[in-house]
């Protein structure tokens, strides 16, 4: 996969959905190999990653350091399983390497490090991604680059005050080359999101951003929102995604404690069967 051009005007929604399905398959393979993981979040964000990597972003997996690439900054380092799936699907990583997910000595650790090809930031300490994305967006604009910066962050992460420092900075510096995709899946480590954060889009609008809230598992809504976010109007853009943890695998969708999933060895095949049965 090589995408150095602007995205097509008429995206192939069916093809993008198939990409998302492939990402989910890869994630289940990784999680079953390790026996555990942050699989629910990964399944929830799969549609967004498919829309980004196979429609919106400009990049070249053969040249991970291409200076004019669009940056995708994953702030929630524990979503690593989803990143490795999409980086493999996009050609940054060999598919066979995914089997090393989370193993000792692997370059695919359970929380992202920036020495993995295609990973732009050391993830894991929440509240870091938006601010670093602001810095990247300022620097790219300073160089006259047309590259844009896309930062994924999560609803739980909005509890980190540093995120709001960065949100103010992005508006102050008029960073219309910055897009935040905010994964609101309603969960955090101890269970459901504990601190009231809604209305998320209105908060970003009040901070000087453009913001829209969509169903983060609706491919058409995703590509439309990403298309609208291209407007160079002096304002950073926020796309608030309402996603379903475990999306595509009903057993995981119904699971109450979804932040970190452990499944008995003999149950992974059942989950994979559910994915194949329920997709679409």
């Amino acid at each position: 996969m090589k995408s150095r051009n602007h995205p097509p005007e008429h995206p192939d929604i069916a093809a993008l959905k198939l990409r998302a399905l492939n990402l989910r398959r890869l994630m289940l393979d990784m999680a079953s190999g390790k026996g555990e993981g942050y699989i629910a979040q990964g399944l929830g964000i799969a549609d967004c990653l498919a829309a980004l990597y196979f429609h919106e972003l400009r990049y070249d997996p053969a040249a991970p350091d291409w200076s004019d690439r669009d940056r995708f900054v994953l702030s929630t380092g524990h979503y690593a399983i989803a990143m490795y799936a999409v980086l493999a699907e996009a050609g940054y990583l060999p598919i066979r390497e995914l089997a090393s997910y989370g193993l000792n000595g692997s370059r695919l650790p359970m929380s992202t490090f920036d020495d993995t090809p295609g990973i732009e930031m050391v993830g894991g300490s929440l509240g870091h991604g938006l601010g670093q994305s602001v810095g990247m967006a300022i620097g790219l604009r300073l160089d006259g680059s047309s590259a844009r910066v896309f930062n994924e962050l999560s609803d739980g992460e909005l509890q980190e005050g540093s995120t709001w420092e960065a949100a103010m900075g992005a508006a102050t510096f008029k960073l219309d080359n910055l897009v935040a995709v905010i994964d609101c899946n309603g969960i955090q480590a101890d269970g459901p999101v504990t601190v009231k954060i809604d209305p998320v889009a209105d908060k970003f609008i009040a901070f000087g951003w453009e913001a829209v809230e969509i169903d983060g598992n609706d491919m058409q809504a995703l590509v439309t929102a990403l298309g609208n976010a291209r407007e160079a109007n002096g304002r950073p853009k926020a796309i608030v995604l309402r996603t379903l943890p475990g999306k595509g695998v009903p057993t995981l969708e119904r699971r109450e404690r979804a932040h970190f999933v452990r499944v008995a060895n003999d149950e992974w095949d059942l989950l994979k069967t559910e994915l194949e049965t329920h997709h679409g």
Binding site: H128, G131, Q132, S133, V134, G135, A166, M168
Partner: peptide, 18 residues
């Protein structure tokens, strides 16, 4: 960046990455 030291350091790190 205003009175926002965390943001100061994050932005500096981001600038370094480009």
């Amino acid at each position: 960046v205003g009175m926002a030291e965390q943001d100061l350091i994050m932005i500096a790190a981001g600038l370094s990455k480009v």
